[in-house]
Write a protein that binds this DNA or RNA. Structure first.
Lengths: 211, 211, 211, 211
DNA sequence: CATGAATGAGGGTTCATTCAT
DNA sequence: AATGAATGAACCCTCATTCAT
């Protein structure tokens, strides 16, 4: 099962064994974060990132095979943060629908509030490589799957549950991106309240409608 | 009288009088549409666009002062299409909430179904110039304003109506982009039905809750 | 005796027989004058010149085979003006040295005062074609020859007269360009007085020194 | 602290610390010298200069931010050479007028004899940036100031001394450019002798005339 | 492993000149 | 003759990537 060439391009170059290597790799990532956030995608040149990280370009290429790999690592880190936060939020939740939704929304808002500009660059401005796109899609699919599972008993047919789940997942994600991480961000508390009501209402009406 | 320089940069270079000019300008736009859709923003080089249009780069620059101006024209055309479609849909609508929402959603779906990949490039990948961003923001604001006006009598305070309007507008827009114009598009009919229910439910519950 | 290709390139394309053609050719020249003066050499594009002349680029090329030919015509016109003015000034002069010099300087000052910026462009900023350079050199040689002839009886050897003539011609020309047609122009009256004294003194001391 | 943007554009990009860098920067300058001299300003393309220097365009742009900056460096180098030579020549001079003038003329002749065609390009053909023009003007002003100071006691009014100084400085400079660095260069010894006599005579007659 | 100088393909853009109408 | 749209070579410059030290 050899990975295809394209995917290899997005993986860090080596699994560093030494602590120092690991630290440097992290420094590069952090530098990329800052650089992309400050200068945008086009302005985030590898030289700038290396300078920000306090190393030479040459060294940068010891840790990442190319620019896209850095971007991919950044996206991946963000995805992991988001997933972790989401799971943590849902872990202690009861089964009440509204509480579940509220916790999910709140978790996502917090993750995104951290760095709005970076989000724009990562998820809107930059031309994502195909494989990265795939990874994002897989993540979304799994979120949809989880949600659908939770909703399964409210719907007559699995396909209905999945559709509802997809709409819900996409709605929350989009609204967070656009209204919290966007240009003129909304007040978080209000946003959470309204989004929760929007989604909860939808899901409950689905149930009520007997589907 | 004089527009500022930055804005001028995004305007087509001349309003051609001759038939041939007009045709060429249209050809360029169409070629840009295809090229951006196929190769993304960065890959949509002016030379490629010109080649696709079957003309020389020089000619391209007779009609648009620079690459971003072409993108801007594309965005503008899309905005106009969308606005036109939306107004047409709402013109003949009654005052019933669900019907209004359904018509709006349907109109937007139709507009976006045309070219999915292009949308991504136009509205997500491209580092839009500030003035273009402003234009989009203005458009959205006016949509929010219109919706808020229609919702005014359902809310105690204008600010509440506006918040609801903003959420509704953003929700519809985002869902259309992500679920219809996105990577794995959804079935239109289902999408319209669900989105209509999502939004209508939200708005009606707002009213019911006495806000 | 076929003219060589390079020289042909700088000649107007045809000797227009018709009055209208002649007028248009003049209009182009005048337009070029204005355009070069206003926009400099690099900014003096053929399209701009044509626009300024109120004709199309295509028409412009009916009268001049290329851009350099326009520049050459402009330079030539200026040379002719200068020569004419100089001859006129000297025609009525007596044989007194100081009076001769003063008249020459005055004539040149008047010619150059007309359009300072154009001069800069024509004689400093623009990369003169080889043949044009030659023409200018020939003109200067003939000026030196004339001056040397007038000075012949003051010098023992013809070569001395020629050297003196060359110095005098170059001095006057340079000073006019630099101090009258230059960036911070000097007051004409003072300039004429001083230059006349400079040159006259030099020539008289040559004589006195018995050479 | 921050120089304005326009001036920054003409500065070399970095003051290289490594020996190799220093050597390369010098190679680029030398290549530019040759290339501009051979092909003129417009023909002195960055690619040609890089090729002549035996490096790639990219490297060239590591040392100079743009084409004009290379030109500026060349001009600056020439100015420095000239100033150095002039000061050195005048340092050991007595106070006798003729000797002073002769030394100045000799120094300038030596500086200019090195590369005639380059001078034309540097000081006549190139559309110098405003800031560079300013630098040249400042240099000339300081030369005029120095000369005026030396002449002060010969003139009744400071303004007269300054006018004379300006004429003298301009005369020497122009003649050197035109007659030594020009197309058909004159014999240096003769040129120095005549120019010295021209200028000295002028200055002494000023004194004599009681001005 | 680190450095940073070097590379060079490729991008956006201009403008003298041509040519179909 | 006139028009002005069309041409395309050539220019300046950037930046991801490599490699000698």
């Amino acid at each position: 099962m050899a990975k295809n060439a394209l995917e290899m391009r997005l993986r860090p170059r080596k699994s560093p064994r030494q602590a120092r290597s690991l630290a440097t790799q992290a420094r590069v990532l952090e530098a990329a974060r800052r650089t992309f956030a400050r200068h945008g995608y086009a302005g985030g040149t590898t030289n700038r990132i290396a300078a920000q990280a306090g190393i030479s370009v040459g060294s940068l290429y010891q840790y990442y095979p190319n620019k896209d790999a850095i971007l991919a690592a950044l996206v991946r880190a963000h995805i992991e943060d988001g997933t972790r936060a989401l799971l943590a939020a849902l872990a202690g939740a009861g089964s009440e629908l509204e509480s579940l939704v509220r916790r999910a929304v709140t978790a996502l808002v917090e993750v995104h509030a951290a760095d709005r500009r970076l989000h724009q660059v990562l998820f809107e401005e930059s031309p994502r490589a195909a494989s990265l796109r795939g990874e994002l899609a897989r993540l979304e699919e799994s979120a949809v799957g989880l949600a659908a599972a939770r909703l399964a008993d409210r719907y007559a047919r699995p396909a209905d549950a999945e559709l509802a789940a997809r709409i819900v997942v996409t709605t929350i994600e989009s609204l967070v991106h656009r209204l919290v991480a966007g240009a003129r961000p909304l007040d978080s508390a209000r946003f959470i309240a309204e989004t929760t009501r929007l989604v909860t209402g939808y899901l409950e009406s689905s149930a009520a409608s007997g589907r």
